[in-house]
C-alpha cells in the first residue's frame, strides 16, 4: 500500500511518515502544496493524507484539482480548525475523512486502515477465527476452545470490531464511536471497563490472551508474539 503525506510541518511530517512506514506502508512525503499537487497528480497512491494549511497551494485546491481531473484516490484531510464549515467543505470537495489536530497517531492509523479497507471489497466472512476463538457473525455467536461464550450485543459488537481489525491498535475514541456512536472524547474509563468485561469472558479462562492493551493508545486483538 502506497501513501502520500502532504504536510509542511516538518517534525509532524517526519513522524507521520515513520509511523506509517513502521505500520507497513510505503510512504511518500511532500513538504509543500506544490510538490504535493504534482505528486498527487502524477503518481498512483492508495491514499493521500492532506493537510489543509499548506504553503504554496492549500489542501483544498489540491483536492479540487485532483477531483477535477478524475483522480479518485481516497483523501484523508488534516485540519487544525474543527469548525463545521471546514469539515463540510472538505467533504463536499470530495475528501473521504478528516482529522482535527491535535490527534493521536493511533487514531490516524485506524482511519487510514478504514479508508483503505473501504476501497477494497469488504471481507464479508461469516466466520472469523483467531487462535481458538471463533466468531459466527451471522448467528452472532462466539466460542472459545469449543465452548460457547455468552456475550451481550454490545460485547459481541466490540469483539467483532477487534477481530475484524485484528492486530490493529484501536483507540478508545474509535471504539466508542463505532460501538456506541459516541463521537467525542469522554473522560471516563468506559471503554476500559467494557474491555475488561469482554476479557473476563473470552480471555480469563483461556490461553493465549488475545485482547492486548497498548498503553496510551488503545486495544488490539491478536495472537501474542512468541516471547
Amino acid at each position: 500500500m502506497k501513501l502520500l503525506v502532504v504536510e509542511d510541518e516538518s517534525k509532524m511530517a517526519d513522524y507521520v511518515r515513520q509511523g506509517l512506514m513502521e505500520a507497513g506502508f510505503i510512504v511518500d512525503l511532500a513538504r509543500n502544496g506544490l510538490d504535493g499537487h504534482m505528486m498527487a497528480m502524477n503518481e498512483r497512491y492508495d491514499l493521500i493524507i492532506l493537510d489543509v494549511m499548506l504553503s504554496g497551494m492549500d489542501g483544498w485546491r489540491i483536492l479540487q484539482a485532483m477531483r477535477a481531473s478524475g483522480v479518485q484516490v481516497p483523501v484523508l484531510f488534516l485540519t487544525a480548525r474543527s469548525s463545521v464549515d471546514d469539515r463540510v467543505r472538505g467533504l463536499e470537495l470530495g475528501a473521504d475523512d478528516y482529522l482535527t489536530k491535535p490527534f493521536a497517531f493511533s487514531e490516524l492509523l485506524a482511519r487510514v486502515r478504514t479508508l483503505l479497507r473501504r476501497g477494497n471489497a469488504p471481507t464479508h466472512h461469516d466466520r472469523i477465527q483467531i487462535a481458538d476463538l471463533e466468531l459466527d457473525l451471522a448467528r452472532r455467536r462466539a466460542t472459545r476452545a469449543g465452548r460457547r461464550i455468552n456475550l451481550t450485543n454490545k460485547e459481541f459488537a466490540l469483539l467483532e470490531l477487534l477481530a475484524r481489525r485484528r492486530s490493529e491498535v484501536l483507540p478508545r475514541s474509535l471504539i466508542a464511536s463505532q460501538i456506541w456512536d459516541m463521537n467525542f472524547a469522554s473522560d471516563t474509563n468506559v471503554i476500559d471497563v467494557a474491555i475488561r468485561r469482554l476479557r473476563a469472558k473470552i480471555d480469563d479462562d483461556f490461553e493465549p490472551k488475545l485482547i492486548q492493551t497498548v498503553r496510551g493508545m488503545g486495544y488490539t486483538l491478536d495472537i501474542p508474539d512468541e516471547g
Partner: peptide
C-alpha cells in the same frame, strides 16, 4: 437509552 447503554458497564 443510548447514553445508558454506553455507561451501563461502567
Amino acid at each position: 437509552k443510548g447514553v445508558f447503554e454506553y455507561f451501563e458497564a461502567w
